[in-house]
Design a protein around this nucleic acid. Structure first.
Lengths: 145, 145
DNA sequence: TATAATATGTCAATATAACTTACCTATAAT
DNA sequence: ATTATAGGTAAGTTATATTGACATATTATA
């Protein structure tokens, strides 16, 4: 057991609180835009992933979100009603559905993202490239358990 | 506008996804313990803060959690029923209530924390002290907007 | 070809955590 | 005396998720 300060319980508690607050703040900046379209955090996350992974399949979306089919389906139905997403069947395996943002969906994502990214952008702008790289590195290690 | 790679939209999107996943994973490791005591994520967060800030007042808890009184009250009632917390009136201003974990509360927190901290601990153990310091630094900047 | 596995959809019921609006008491500060 | 602060509560609602069960279409495999 190393005796490093940052491996002590108090520091770990502090980091855990920061991870929570960081997440909460990062996903609350765009609330006004979500309200404008009568959607919520769950929809924002899906739109975000659709923007990152164009044509992602339903099962891969599920794996990334770690929610149930039923839960995702509600969100997708809302997004269809809002006319923001389209589906395309896989040409080889027609069981697979690929999901895409259409033009309206992309526009709404950009509105959300414009607000959401500000916080991160400013934090990174105010940091050295090494700080940023290390932030990313440690976060990745946390994720990969 | 700097032309740094990590300030590009794709990288910002990637970081935002990581912040979400990092949070979700960090707060899901202890689910089994929560189930054991029939409590949820909201209770875990309160217990966590009570462990960090012994004797914190209700209003300061509310400010840290950013939820409504009604929402916090439900959680506190559950924790009272579970016999994990106690209150002490402020000796000077008796309107203020200080909240503490009792022995049982502290024991349950340790059970939760033991599982939860593993992920963070291992990530930090696998990192240099500079990486950890930079992680903390950037996270703080994200929080402070 | 029959069977199993995969990808997706859906119904019903329930749980968790939060919200809004409104009103209340007690105490402290001005 | 009035206002502000700290906290509590009631009723109704919303957002997001769950479990369990069942259905369909398609692909892979024995």
């Amino acid at each position: 057991m190393k005796e490093l300060l940052y491996l002590k319980d108090d520091q770990l508690k502090d980091l855990i609180e920061k991870i929570f607050v960081g997440y909460r703040e990062t996903f609350s900046d765009s609330k006004k835009i979500l309200d404008k379209y009568s959607i919520g955090l769950a929809h924002q996350k899906v739109i975000h992933l659709l923007s990152m992974y164009e044509g992602i399949s339903i099962s891969k979306l599920l794996a990334k979100l770690k929610v149930t089919k039923q839960s995702l389906n509600r969100v997708l139905k809302d997004l269809i009603k809002l006319e923001t997403i389209v589906f395309k069947k896989d040409e080889i395996d027609t069981r697979i559905k690929h999901v895409y943002l259409n033009e309206k969906g992309k526009k709404i994502f950009e509105e959300i993202f414009l607000l959401q990214k500000k916080r991160i952008y400013n934090a990174l702008l105010d940091s050295s490239s090494e700080e940023v790289i290390n932030f990313d590195k440690v976060l990745k290690k946390i994720i990969n358990g």
